[in-house]
Structures are given as C-alpha cells and as structure tokens.
C-alpha cells in the first residue's frame, strides 16, 4: 500500500490504492476470531506483520483471506491492496516467515487471491484506528 499521508481519501486522483469505499463482503475481514490451536497461533503471528509503508498489521488491513493447517504446513491465502504493489515478494515472505513461527509448523505456503477484490471497508476498526493515528482520515 502506498499513499501520501494527508491525501484526500476517496479521491480519484490517488491511484496507488483505491480508497473509494466499497462494500465489505460478508465474512470479511477475516481476523482469526474463533480460531483455535495452531491456527490461532498463526493468526496471532500474522498480526505482527505490518504493511511496509505504514504501521498497520496485514490482518487489520483485511489482507488475510484464510489460514489453514495441513500437518506441519501452514497455508495462508491473502490479497494485496494494489496489483502493482512493488513490495509483493517482501510481504509474502514476511507472512510466510510469520506463519512458520507457530508451534509444529515447519513450512508455509502463501497464495495470492484477488477475489473478493480488497477495498478500504475491509480494514478492521482497529486497523482504521491505526491508520488515523498514522495520519490518514478513514
């Protein structure tokens, strides 16, 4: 995600990330609420991964679409705010490494999904609060 702080939100001119409000699809954002055991541990670890450009967790941004565990392997599905994200490999790697910190996990696969397409209403309340603290009005 990339934008100048203080830029008008919802402006058509700010193109890196589309902040025009959309509907948050049902079941999104996913936050790991209700997860137990190793899955819960993975969600907790993912909460520590921040967007490279602002101090907000990728979970609070609504980027994590699913977490599953298959034996000792974690499978994470996530999206990006913007398809042209130049930090894609970095974020994917951060998420992968975080998932591998959970107990009993020795491998992790991170798959990108673009459906449903992310929009700003998929940011959690806590995420919006962090974005406001960072200087964005959401």
């Amino acid at each position: 995600m990339s934008m100048d702080s203080g830029a008008p939100l919802g402006s058509d001119a700010c193109a890196y990330t589309d902040y025009t409000p959309g509907e948050a699809p049902e079941e999104f954002p996913k936050t790991g609420e209700g997860a137990t055991g190793v899955e819960a541990e993975i969600w907790e670890a993912l909460y520590e991964v921040q967007d490279p450009e602002m101090p907000v967790s990728v979970v609070d941004l609504g980027l994590i679409y699913n977490v599953e565990v298959d034996g000792s392997k974690a499978i994470v599905e996530m999206t990006l705010t913007y398809t042209g994200c130049p930090a894609r490999d970095m974020i994917l790697n951060d998420v992968r490494c975080a998932a591998m910190t959970a107990s009993g996990i020795d491998d992790a696969e991170v798959n990108l999904r673009y459906n449903p397409p992310w929009n700003v209403n998929m940011v959690t309340e806590q995420g919006k609060e962090h974005l406001r603290e960072f200087g964005l009005s959401v």
Partner: peptide, 14 residues
C-alpha cells in the same frame, strides 16, 4: 482468470 478481473477493472477506470 474470472477471479482476478474485478480487481483489474477497478484499477483501470481512471
């Protein structure tokens, strides 16, 4: 393919 189209359409408008 179908799963990726909505994201592209949203980014192409401007």
């Amino acid at each position: 393919i179908a799963d990726r189209v909505a994201k592209v359409l949203a980014e192409e408008r401007y």
